[in-house]
Amino acid sequence: MKVNGTDVEIPLSQQKDIQTVRKRRKKIVLGPYLWLLPSVLLIFTVVLYPIIELLITSVSDMSLSGLRKGFIGLENFKTLFKDATFIKVLKNTLIWTVAVVGISTVLSLGIASLLNQEFPGRRFVRATLIVPWAVSTIITAVIWKWILDFNYGTLNLMLSKLGIIEKNIYWLADPVLSFPLMIVVGIFVTIPFTSFIFLSGLQSIPSSLYESASVDGANSIKSFFYITLPQLKPALTVSTVLNTIYVFNSFPIIWAITKGDPINRTDLVTTYLYKLAFQENKMGEAAAVSVISFILLLSFALFYLKLVTRKGD
């Protein structure tokens, strides 16, 4: 038997022992991969294969029945960027994402700081806060649709009782009011998620840091900027990335309340994609919209994580 490239005479019994050890090592090496194989196959089937199909569809000429007629390169993308409606929808989506994520993050920091304090009924307030997030988004959206209804909405009723308005307002049909109201609904749905992420981060900050800061003469504002925010950086990173992806891909809120009306004023990329694919049967352009959305989200996530990591270093 060769050992390190040199012929060495080894008794037969020892040779069998060595072969047994080698077989066991091979089993140990292959064992974890065999356990991972079902998960890898599932990921390929559910995630990777649809992505590959999406990319192929985005550069193909698709029939009305959804069949590929041939390769057309980037024509679907060119058609989209020549469409004024798509440019408007893309701007809507960017404004929607920045506004909802930014405002909900600021408000959630204040709410989480409040919930981190000791006060009577704190458990009840925490449980109440999570309700809008725990309830299905489509149910919340439908409730808001009725709140904003012209004839039966409670918002018009309350404002009328308070004497603020004399006649009912078309909240959802007004091009000026509809989109800001959708942002308000998005913030309402998002706040519980971000608040509890920040609350978990606040509870992990040692109280000794604040005690040391107070001894050194730091007030609450300095403690917030020099202790709380730096310690919350991991929570802020997770919240910002996940919340941006979630808000950017939001579909139920807009579709349940306005369906993108009036005149595409409240359309987002997701609702516009749905209309292209299932109402206008433009599968190639719809796939191109999905690819553009994926590139935008991936670019943001990589840029933000690199920025946060660099600041941390």
Rank of each mutant, 00 (worst) to 15 (best):
N249C: 15
L48A: 13
L90K: 07
L209R: 06
V308Y: 02
N92D: 05
R265N: 14
S195I: 06
Q14V: 13
A288H: 02
K27E: 13
S136R: 03
F251K: 07
Y33R: 04
V100I: 13
L236Q: 12
N151A: 14
I43A: 15
F179P: 00
L181G: 00
L202N: 09
P192R: 01
K275T: 11
P180I: 01
F44L: 11
A277F: 06
L157F: 15
S58R: 02
L229F: 12
V135S: 12
K311W: 15
K222H: 15
A173H: 06
K167R: 14
I292C: 11
V29R: 09
F81P: 06
P120H: 07
T105C: 09
P120N: 04
Q19F: 15
Y210G: 08
R68E: 15
Y304S: 08
A235I: 01
I183F: 01
Q279F: 11
I72M: 13
R68Y: 05
A84E: 14
Q231S: 15
I191M: 04
V184P: 02
E75G: 06
I263H: 08
P192E: 08
A256N: 02
K69P: 00
L67S: 14
S65N: 10
I18E: 12
S13R: 10
D174A: 04
A288L: 04
L34E: 03
W133S: 00
K233N: 09
P206R: 08
Q279T: 10
K88F: 12
L296D: 03
F86W: 07
S136W: 01
S39K: 03
T309L: 13
K27T: 10
P132Y: 00
S113C: 07
A235W: 02
L54F: 01
Y170V: 04
V184E: 05
G121T: 06
F119R: 06
R22Y: 14
F188Q: 04
G31N: 10
I263Q: 09
W35Y: 15
V125E: 00
S200D: 05
I164Q: 05
